[in-house]
């Protein structure tokens, strides 16, 4: 945990020192290019790696009633038997984290034990669902807001987004809710790992590192907007230069900006080699993305081995006399088989 925090701090410090010492183009131009390339190539490579292995069997985890008789109501989304159903299931899974949402314990029944008085805490894993959802959506919105820097003039939808995001009208520059929520959600996800014994037990560096990295990105981002108020116009010119493959001088931009950019680059570099690939992986998951129709339509296994089994003929040879004794019909009667 601390190791990964140190690592993130180290990355930040190097970026700070480097850009202050005049290596800003390295951190602001070269690294992002490299990171973007690794991210794209790496993620595609990961997906190809998965796709190279076949899905030999149709193994959806059925979360409801199958399609069977007319008078029995099918759970069309949780136990889909059509592509539409699978699409709906995947949609809910990807956009609303359906499985995590399911992760609820039904109401607490304290009545079971008379002595188990009132005041029991309701523990529900919906918290995880809630914060995970908040985190992912805010991250997406924050990312989209950044399009203001990538496109000139800023697209209309970005402006709308910003208006909506700053709807609380606090502070100047206007406070964007998504940034704040993102920070809170990340802290929640981190706190779970630190304070819940069960999660501490299963957490690895691989889990803490991306969390610290994201926290670093969010914190530097927030600083750049509200505290270390960067010269937005200059940053935009710089970024436009990078995105249009004609980098301009980075002079005059605060080192903190380069820390932010470097951390984002680190995230992109790390992404394809880590659990973060779950973003792409969820679409591949055979327990979710297959229809429960394997009795209606045959699914082909490309490496299906040849059939090898104890055949009826061998079976009858082994037990012919005994079978004849109880009058079981035979392919070959004992006297003929002997010939």
């Amino acid at each position: 945990m601390f190791l990964s925090l140190l690592l993130v701090l180290l990355i930040g410090a190097v970026a700070w020192a480097g850009s202050a010492a005049g290596f800003a183009p390295l951190f602001g131009v070269a690294l992002p290019y490299l990171a973007a390339a690794v991210f794209i190539v790496g993620t595609v490579w990961r997906m190809v790696y998965w796709a190279k292995s076949p899905v030999p069997f149709r193994i959806p985890t059925t979360g409801g009633q199958e399609q069977s008789l007319d008078f029995i109501r099918q759970a069309k989304i949780d136990c889909p038997d059509t592509q539409m159903g699978v699409f709906a299931r995947m949609f809910l899974e990807v956009f609303l984290f359906r499985s995590l949402f399911r992760n609820t314990q039904a109401d607490v029944r304290t009545s079971l034990t008379a002595n188990n008085g009132p005041g029991t805490v309701y523990y529900s894993s919906k918290w995880l669902w809630c914060f995970a959802l908040l985190f992912h959506y805010c991250f997406l919105l924050v990312f989209l807001r950044h399009f203001r820097f990538f496109v000139e003039p800023a697209p209309l939808w970005v402006t709308w987004l910003e208006t909506l995001d700053g709807v609380m009208q606090i502070g100047a520059p206007r406070f964007f809710m998504t940034g704040g929520i993102l920070l809170v959600a990340l802290l929640f996800l981190l706190a779970r790992r630190v304070f819940n014994g069960r999660l501490r037990c299963i957490s690895l560096v691989n889990d803490y590192f991306p969390l610290w990295l994201l926290l670093g990105i969010v914190c530097t981002g927030i600083c750049l907007r509200y505290f270390d108020k960067t010269e937005i116009a200059m940053v935009k010119v710089f970024i436009m230069g990078v995105t249009h493959f004609s980098p301009v001088s980075a002079e005059g931009i605060a080192p903190l900006f380069f820390v932010h950019v470097t951390l984002v680059s680190a995230l992109l570099l790390y992404f394809p080699f880590s659990k973060l690939t779950h973003m792409a992986g969820v679409f591949f998951s055979p327990t979710r993305n297959t229809a429960n129709d394997s009795r209606r339509a045959r699914h082909i296994n490309p490496w299906n081995p040849p059939k090898q089994y104890f055949t009826y003929a061998e079976y009858e040879d082994a037990y012919r006399d005994a079978m004849a004794e109880v009058g079981l019909p035979l392919e070959k009667e004992p006297d003929k088989a002997a010939e």
Partner: peptide, 20 residues
């Protein structure tokens, strides 16, 4: 953490026993 008697049967059992 988990107080649902079905989500966490172990704790439920010890609480029931302890009170009585």
């Amino acid at each position: 953490t988990v107080t649902d008697p079905f989500g966490n049967p172990g704790a439920d059992m010890i609480r029931e026993a302890a009170g009585a």
